[in-house]
Protein backbone atom coordinates (compact mmCIF):
# COMPACT_ATOMS: atom_id res chain seq x y z
CA UNK A 1 0.00 0.00 0.00
CA UNK A 2 2.87 2.36 0.73
CA UNK A 3 3.95 2.13 -2.89
CA UNK A 4 0.69 3.89 -3.72
CA UNK A 5 1.69 6.76 -1.49
CA UNK A 6 5.29 7.20 -2.54
CA UNK A 7 5.93 9.63 -5.34
CA UNK A 8 7.24 7.93 -8.43
CA UNK A 9 10.92 8.10 -9.20
CA UNK A 10 10.46 9.06 -12.82
CA UNK A 11 9.02 12.25 -14.18
CA UNK A 12 5.54 10.83 -14.65
CA UNK A 13 2.57 9.79 -12.59
CA UNK A 14 3.40 6.12 -13.02
CA UNK A 15 4.83 4.03 -10.22
CA UNK A 16 5.50 0.38 -9.52
CA UNK A 17 1.94 -0.28 -8.46
CA UNK A 18 0.42 1.36 -11.51
CA UNK A 19 2.76 -0.54 -13.80
CA UNK A 20 1.74 -3.82 -12.21
CA UNK A 21 -1.94 -2.90 -12.45
CA UNK A 22 -1.43 -1.75 -16.01
CA UNK A 23 0.07 -5.07 -17.02
CA UNK A 24 -2.75 -6.96 -15.32
CA UNK A 25 -5.22 -4.79 -17.21
CA UNK A 26 -3.69 -5.50 -20.60
CA UNK A 27 -3.89 -9.22 -19.96
CA UNK A 28 -7.30 -8.86 -18.37
CA UNK A 29 -8.78 -6.96 -21.29
CA UNK A 30 -7.32 -9.41 -23.77
CA UNK A 31 -9.08 -12.23 -21.94
CA UNK A 32 -12.30 -10.20 -21.76
CA UNK A 33 -12.26 -9.61 -25.50
CA UNK A 34 -11.74 -13.30 -26.12
CA UNK A 35 -14.61 -14.22 -23.81
CA UNK A 36 -16.90 -11.54 -25.16
CA UNK A 37 -16.38 -12.21 -28.84
CA UNK A 38 -15.15 -15.76 -29.24
CA UNK A 39 -16.01 -17.98 -26.32
CA UNK A 40 -19.59 -16.94 -25.74
CA UNK A 41 -22.25 -18.05 -28.20
CA UNK A 42 -24.56 -15.63 -30.03
CA UNK A 43 -27.74 -14.83 -28.18
CA UNK A 44 -31.16 -16.07 -29.21
CA UNK A 45 -33.06 -12.86 -29.94
CA UNK A 46 -30.30 -10.36 -30.54
CA UNK A 47 -27.69 -12.42 -32.32
CA UNK A 48 -24.20 -11.05 -32.03
CA UNK A 49 -25.05 -7.43 -31.23
CA UNK A 50 -25.78 -8.36 -27.59
CA UNK A 51 -22.00 -8.47 -27.05
CA UNK A 52 -22.19 -4.70 -26.56
CA UNK A 53 -23.60 -5.58 -23.15
CA UNK A 54 -20.20 -6.76 -21.94
CA UNK A 55 -18.90 -3.25 -22.50
CA UNK A 56 -21.98 -1.16 -21.77
CA UNK A 57 -23.00 -2.54 -18.39
CA UNK A 58 -19.57 -2.42 -16.69
CA UNK A 59 -19.13 1.11 -18.11
CA UNK A 60 -22.37 2.18 -16.45
CA UNK A 61 -21.09 0.79 -13.16
CA UNK A 62 -17.76 2.61 -13.43
CA UNK A 63 -19.50 5.87 -14.38
CA UNK A 64 -21.77 5.58 -11.35
CA UNK A 65 -18.79 4.74 -9.12
CA UNK A 66 -17.07 7.88 -10.32
CA UNK A 67 -20.16 9.97 -9.62
CA UNK A 68 -20.45 8.45 -6.17
CA UNK A 69 -16.84 9.32 -5.37
CA UNK A 70 -17.38 12.87 -6.62
CA UNK A 71 -20.42 13.21 -4.39
CA UNK A 72 -18.68 11.80 -1.31
CA UNK A 73 -15.63 13.93 -2.03
CA UNK A 74 -17.73 17.07 -2.38
CA UNK A 75 -19.47 16.28 0.89
CA UNK A 76 -16.14 15.84 2.67
CA UNK A 77 -14.84 19.11 1.26
CA UNK A 78 -17.81 20.98 2.66
CA UNK A 79 -17.80 19.09 5.93
CA UNK A 80 -14.10 18.72 6.75
CA UNK A 81 -12.42 21.02 4.22
CA UNK A 82 -10.31 18.11 3.07
CA UNK A 83 -7.89 18.75 0.20
CA UNK A 84 -7.46 15.05 -0.39
CA UNK A 85 -11.16 14.61 -1.05
CA UNK A 86 -11.24 17.72 -3.21
CA UNK A 87 -8.62 16.20 -5.50
CA UNK A 88 -10.36 12.82 -5.46
CA UNK A 89 -13.66 14.40 -6.43
CA UNK A 90 -12.07 16.04 -9.47
CA UNK A 91 -10.28 12.88 -10.58
CA UNK A 92 -13.45 10.84 -10.14
CA UNK A 93 -15.51 13.34 -12.14
CA UNK A 94 -13.08 13.08 -15.04
CA UNK A 95 -13.32 9.30 -15.06
CA UNK A 96 -17.10 9.47 -14.73
CA UNK A 97 -17.30 11.84 -17.71
CA UNK A 98 -15.20 9.54 -19.92
CA UNK A 99 -17.27 6.49 -19.04
CA UNK A 100 -20.59 8.33 -19.35
CA UNK A 101 -19.53 9.18 -22.89
CA UNK A 102 -18.86 5.48 -23.47
CA UNK A 103 -22.26 4.61 -21.99
CA UNK A 104 -24.01 7.07 -24.30
CA UNK A 105 -22.16 5.91 -27.41
CA UNK A 106 -22.47 2.20 -26.69
CA UNK A 107 -26.08 2.53 -25.58
CA UNK A 108 -26.87 4.49 -28.71
CA UNK A 109 -25.34 1.87 -31.01
CA UNK A 110 -27.04 -0.92 -29.10
CA UNK A 111 -30.29 0.96 -29.50
CA UNK A 112 -29.77 1.12 -33.24
CA UNK A 113 -29.08 -2.59 -33.28
CA UNK A 114 -32.10 -3.63 -31.23
CA UNK A 115 -34.75 -0.94 -31.76
CA UNK A 116 -33.56 0.59 -35.02
CA UNK A 117 -33.10 4.08 -33.55
CA UNK A 118 -30.05 5.77 -32.08
CA UNK A 119 -32.02 7.67 -29.47
CA UNK A 120 -35.32 7.65 -27.60
CA UNK A 121 -36.47 10.17 -25.04
CA UNK A 122 -37.03 7.73 -22.22
CA UNK A 123 -36.06 8.32 -18.62
CA UNK A 124 -32.85 6.33 -18.61
CA UNK A 125 -31.30 7.79 -21.76
CA UNK A 126 -32.43 11.32 -21.02
CA UNK A 127 -31.05 11.31 -17.49
CA UNK A 128 -27.77 9.83 -18.74
CA UNK A 129 -27.49 12.66 -21.24
CA UNK A 130 -28.20 15.13 -18.44
CA UNK A 131 -25.55 13.48 -16.29
CA UNK A 132 -23.05 14.06 -19.10
CA UNK A 133 -23.94 17.75 -19.29
CA UNK A 134 -23.80 18.16 -15.51
CA UNK A 135 -20.39 16.50 -15.34
CA UNK A 136 -19.08 18.71 -18.16
CA UNK A 137 -20.34 21.75 -16.26
CA UNK A 138 -18.58 20.60 -13.10
CA UNK A 139 -15.34 20.01 -14.99
CA UNK A 140 -15.68 23.43 -16.65
CA UNK A 141 -15.92 25.08 -13.24
CA UNK A 142 -12.95 23.16 -11.89
CA UNK A 143 -10.71 24.18 -14.78
CA UNK A 144 -10.87 27.79 -13.68
CA UNK A 145 -8.06 29.10 -11.53
CA UNK A 146 -9.28 30.78 -8.40
CA UNK A 147 -8.47 31.02 -4.72
CA UNK A 148 -8.36 27.35 -3.76
CA UNK A 149 -10.44 27.25 -0.58
CA UNK A 150 -13.35 29.30 -1.89
CA UNK A 151 -13.28 27.68 -5.30
CA UNK A 152 -13.16 24.17 -3.94
CA UNK A 153 -16.17 24.92 -1.73
CA UNK A 154 -18.21 26.20 -4.63
CA UNK A 155 -17.18 23.27 -6.79
CA UNK A 156 -18.14 20.99 -3.92
CA UNK A 157 -21.67 22.40 -3.81
CA UNK A 158 -21.87 21.91 -7.56
CA UNK A 159 -20.54 18.37 -7.29
CA UNK A 160 -22.91 17.50 -4.48
CA UNK A 161 -25.89 18.54 -6.59
CA UNK A 162 -25.02 16.40 -9.63
CA UNK A 163 -26.68 13.19 -8.49
CA UNK A 164 -29.79 14.87 -7.02
CA UNK A 165 -30.31 16.72 -10.30
CA UNK A 166 -30.04 13.51 -12.30
CA UNK A 167 -32.61 11.91 -10.02
CA UNK A 168 -34.96 14.89 -10.42
CA UNK A 169 -34.69 14.74 -14.20
CA UNK A 170 -35.15 10.97 -14.18
CA UNK A 171 -38.43 11.18 -12.30
CA UNK A 172 -39.66 14.12 -14.35
CA UNK A 173 -39.17 12.21 -17.57
CA UNK A 174 -40.58 8.98 -16.15
CA UNK A 175 -43.87 10.61 -15.17
CA UNK A 176 -43.97 12.64 -18.34
CA UNK A 177 -43.37 9.82 -20.78
CA UNK A 178 -45.50 7.30 -18.95
CA UNK A 179 -48.49 8.99 -20.50
CA UNK A 180 -47.32 8.13 -23.98
CA UNK A 181 -45.55 4.84 -23.59
CA UNK A 182 -44.10 2.44 -21.07
CA UNK A 183 -41.81 4.38 -18.80
CA UNK A 184 -38.61 2.74 -19.88
CA UNK A 185 -38.14 0.78 -23.01
CA UNK A 186 -36.65 -2.49 -21.95
CA UNK A 187 -34.49 -4.57 -24.13
CA UNK A 188 -35.65 -8.06 -24.89
CA UNK A 189 -34.46 -10.15 -21.99
CA UNK A 190 -31.21 -11.75 -22.99
CA UNK A 191 -31.18 -15.48 -22.50
CA UNK A 192 -28.13 -15.74 -20.33
CA UNK A 193 -26.18 -18.91 -19.94
CA UNK A 194 -23.41 -19.60 -17.47
CA UNK A 195 -20.47 -18.51 -19.58
CA UNK A 196 -22.25 -15.27 -20.49
CA UNK A 197 -22.91 -14.54 -16.83
CA UNK A 198 -19.31 -15.28 -15.96
CA UNK A 199 -18.08 -13.01 -18.75
CA UNK A 200 -20.31 -10.21 -17.50
CA UNK A 201 -19.01 -10.48 -13.94
CA UNK A 202 -15.47 -10.85 -15.16
CA UNK A 203 -16.08 -7.64 -17.12
CA UNK A 204 -17.06 -5.91 -13.88
CA UNK A 205 -13.77 -7.06 -12.36
CA UNK A 206 -11.62 -5.85 -15.24
CA UNK A 207 -13.40 -2.51 -15.46
CA UNK A 208 -13.14 -2.17 -11.70
CA UNK A 209 -9.36 -2.54 -11.83
CA UNK A 210 -9.35 -0.14 -14.78
CA UNK A 211 -11.21 2.37 -12.60
CA UNK A 212 -8.63 2.02 -9.82
CA UNK A 213 -5.76 2.48 -12.26
CA UNK A 214 -7.37 5.61 -13.74
CA UNK A 215 -8.09 6.99 -10.28
CA UNK A 216 -4.50 6.58 -9.10
CA UNK A 217 -3.16 8.43 -12.13
CA UNK A 218 -6.02 10.92 -12.01
CA UNK A 219 -5.48 11.69 -8.33
CA UNK A 220 -1.79 12.33 -8.92
CA UNK A 221 -2.53 14.58 -11.87
CA UNK A 222 -5.08 16.64 -9.97
CA UNK A 223 -2.72 16.90 -7.00
CA UNK A 224 0.12 18.07 -9.25
CA UNK A 225 -2.20 20.62 -10.85
CA UNK A 226 -2.81 21.97 -7.38
CA UNK A 227 0.92 22.18 -6.70
CA UNK A 228 1.55 23.99 -9.95
CA UNK A 229 -1.14 26.50 -9.17
CA UNK A 230 0.12 27.02 -5.64
CA UNK A 231 3.64 27.57 -6.91
CA UNK A 232 2.32 29.96 -9.52
CA UNK A 233 0.43 31.84 -6.83
CA UNK A 234 3.52 32.10 -4.64
CA UNK A 235 5.49 33.51 -7.53
CA UNK A 236 2.80 36.04 -8.27
CA UNK A 237 2.69 37.15 -4.66
CA UNK A 238 6.47 37.40 -4.53
CA UNK A 239 6.49 39.49 -7.68
CA UNK A 240 3.83 41.76 -6.33
CA UNK A 241 5.80 42.21 -3.12
CA UNK A 242 8.95 42.92 -5.09
CA UNK A 243 7.10 45.60 -7.03
CA UNK A 244 5.97 47.19 -3.81
CA UNK A 245 9.51 47.09 -2.46
CA UNK A 246 8.58 44.76 0.38
CA UNK A 247 10.97 41.95 1.22
CA UNK A 248 9.28 38.54 1.05
CA UNK A 249 8.94 36.95 4.52
CA UNK A 250 11.19 33.97 3.97
CA UNK A 251 13.86 35.78 2.02
CA UNK A 252 17.21 36.57 3.51
CA UNK A 253 17.31 40.36 3.70
Amino acid sequence: MTSLLNPPATSATASRSTRILGLLLIVGFALLLYLAFVATPPEQTQGDSYRILYLHVPSVTVAYLGCLLTTVGSLMVLWKGSDWWDVTALAAARVAAAFTAVVLVSGSIWGRATWGVYWVWDARLTSTAMLMVLLLGYLALRRLPADPPAQSRRAAVLGLLIIPNVILVHYSVTWWRSVHQGSTITRPDAQIDNLMLFTLFYGFLVFGVFFVWLMIHGFRIAWLERQVEAVGLEHAIAERRAEAGVVAPGAVG
Binding site: A98, H217, G218
Partner: peptide
Protein backbone atom coordinates in the same frame (compact mmCIF):
# COMPACT_ATOMS: atom_id res chain seq x y z
CA UNK B 1 -22.69 -3.37 -34.50
CA UNK B 2 -20.84 -5.00 -31.64
CA UNK B 3 -17.44 -4.47 -33.20
CA UNK B 4 -18.15 -0.85 -34.16
CA UNK B 5 -19.36 -0.20 -30.65
CA UNK B 6 -16.33 -1.68 -28.94
CA UNK B 7 -13.97 0.10 -31.33
CA UNK B 8 -15.59 3.52 -30.84
CA UNK B 9 -15.61 3.06 -27.08
CA UNK B 10 -12.01 1.91 -27.15
CA UNK B 11 -11.12 5.09 -29.02
CA UNK B 12 -12.82 7.22 -26.38
CA UNK B 13 -11.06 5.40 -23.57
CA UNK B 14 -7.74 5.40 -25.40
CA UNK B 15 -7.94 9.17 -25.78
CA UNK B 16 -8.67 9.45 -22.06
CA UNK B 17 -5.79 7.15 -21.15
CA UNK B 18 -3.46 9.02 -23.46
CA UNK B 19 -4.48 12.38 -22.02
CA UNK B 20 -4.01 11.02 -18.50
CA UNK B 21 -0.52 9.67 -19.10
CA UNK B 22 0.73 12.64 -21.11
CA UNK B 23 -0.63 15.18 -18.66
CA UNK B 24 0.93 13.23 -15.85
CA UNK B 25 4.29 13.45 -17.55
CA UNK B 26 4.00 17.16 -18.27
CA UNK B 27 2.93 18.08 -14.77
Amino acid sequence: YAITCWVLSAVILAVFIGWTLLRGRRL
